[in-house]
Design a protein around this nucleic acid. Sequence first.
DNA 1: GCCAACGTTGGC
DNA 2: GCCAACGTTGGC
Length: 154
Amino acid sequence: MRFWLMKSEPSDCSIDKLAELPDQTVAWYGVRNYQARNFMRDQMNIGDGVLFYHSNCKQPGIAGIAKVCSTAYPDATQYTRESKYFDPKATPEQPRWFNVDVKLVKKIDLIPIDDLRKYPELVRMRTLQRGNRLSITPVDPDEWKFITTRLANA
DNA sequence: GCCAACGTTGGC
DNA sequence: GCCAACGTTGGC
């Protein structure tokens, strides 16, 4: 079992919107970065833990706990000409982009990025490193444990 | 909305 | 296969 941090822009899909979706599950479509794709395609398994992170918004931070609930499959939006995620080089025979499904476990009181930076236990977190832009990053088991047991108040 | 950081593209 | 130009990300 692995752990991940996955960024979502609240204007696109917030934790509250996720909570209202059927089965509280969302397809993590639209990832167009190879490293992030490879994490989903090659390393994620059903049941993996997910820190649901709000990015590019007024209060960035961890907004909830979720889990991976499918293995990776081709991202449908890559074939949709009208989509901003359309990729002319992708074909159903040779898909380029993949996504998993993510299911809400619980919403928590938002842990702002400022708070995350306060703890020595978290200084090495990938997502807190300077210049990091990856929308999906692995989370160490120790970091996961610290965040979910010490910081997360539902 | 600024801008530093970083990934991707494409000419050579 | 180098690298300059360009586009995107995301905290601030």
